[in-house]
Design a protein around this nucleic acid. Structure first.
Lengths: 227, 227
DNA sequence: CTTGACATCGAACGAATGTTCAGGTATCAT
DNA sequence: ATGATACCTGAACATTCGTTCGATGTCAAG
């Protein structure tokens, strides 16, 4: 039979230590010592902290420089405390459905290739980053939203939108994924292109319309240069 | 008379220490100890290192957490080794001249308000970041380059451009600053808007034309949401 | 030449910190 | 019951590391 306490992966206490390290790092700009972790996590003995740290290292949650004071750092999602790693879940294009978002799931990845790193101070200070994801724009279909082929759009997961926010929507009726400014009117939705010279689209409220998230940031990398 | 050795601000040795700390941090992911700095900078005594560290701290070049092992970090330009702080030199708009760039000068700033922080891995690996600067787009004049009011364009300082690169140019003839794809043809330059539906501008080679830099990245922050 | 600010050295001290170990306790499968 | 395994304790130990201090060298001003 399976033991209850043994949760193969990470336990409550592991998580607490992990959280403590990150919070400490953010607060003091340097990692905590073993003893400080002990105090912060109600562990009386340094050897126990060491014990957990070893496990966290084995499972790849942290890196340690043994013998070096405060030589530990959490690996994974974020390359530094000042940066958020936002996963690129897939492409967004006119004719293909948007990737499904499991509500409440974190899409954190430590795979640099499938993520963009964004400095924290480019986002609102309260932004935790857990419900952010990114899509890579394919094709010119978003051109009326001032968004180009190859651009990366960062979105915040939401099912509702306030007027004036730019949202990613899926229109089953037209088999269309698009980025538009969103306005709720009497009995219809108005999807307004960012480009002021273009006309809005009107969608009656009885027509299905899925809001997949609101746009938080657009990043366009120009690759035609070498450093 | 002024003494020669005393250079009020920062000396050669201070700089060496500063460089060493940054290089060490990049390499080992944690700050060096006093003794390691000594070895790396050919200083035989820890007290001398401490002596210089004190001065660097007084002048605001580094921060120290006394008593804490390896508790020092360089302040200023970059919030972390994984991030480049790129100064926003000013606005770019149709009718106003571009900010003058002193060749060879670094515009590094520690003022967060006048800079954007960009994760290093969003730029080419060799990019040192010293000749990067950013401009904030004002108005809709760049709309044909798929660039909106309020966007931040990151540029690499250069006076020459290769065909196909997007550059910031100043056209004294038309009193116009603009962002366009650059092509050199027989005896004229072709400035091609990013928006494929728009027509290029042709400039004869005898017409003055100042290339201020090539576009490396465009960042659009959408502020209409709260975390 | 003397003085004093600055720079450097070497050594010693003590606090901070990672490591190790000998033993405890609880839970669970057999 | 029993042994295995995970979890935990307390203490001692060995380094690492920041700090301090007295001595020395250098150079420009008085």
């Amino acid at each position: 039979m399976m033991m209850v306490r043994k949760s193969k992966g990470i336990g409550e206490r592991h998580q607490k230590i992990l959280d403590f390290i990150q919070e400490y790092q953010r607060k003091y700009k340097h990692p905590p010592s073993i003893r400080e972790i002990g105090e912060g996590c109600d562990i009386s003995s340094t050897s126990v902290v060491n014990y957990y740290l070893d496990q966290l290292e084995k499972n790849g949650y942290i890196e340690r420089d043994r013998k070096i004071s405060r030589g530990l750092r959490v690996t994974g999602a974020n390359i530094s405390v000042d940066t958020l790693r936002i996963p690129i879940l897939g492409p967004i294009a006119a004719g293909i459905p948007l990737p499904e978002l499991q509500p409440g799931v974190n899409y954190l990845t430590d795979n640099e290739a499938n993520a963009v790193d964004v400095a924290r101070n480019l986002l609102p200070p309260k932004e935790k980053g857990t419900d952010l994801y990114a899509l890579e724009v394919k094709g010119d279909s978003m051109i009326d939203a001032m968004i180009n082929d190859g651009d990366i759009v960062v979105l915040k997961r939401t099912a509702e939108a306030r007027n004036g926010e730019m949202v990613a929507v899926w229109l089953p009726r037209d088999n269309e994924a698009t980025l538009k400014y969103f306005f709720k009117e009497k009995d219809r939705f108005r999807l307004q292109p960012a480009n002021p010279t273009m006309e809005p689209i009107y969608i009656n409220k009885d027509v299905p319309l899925e809001i997949k998230g609101k746009v938080v940031m657009v990043i366009r990398k120009i690759e035609t240069y070498a450093a």
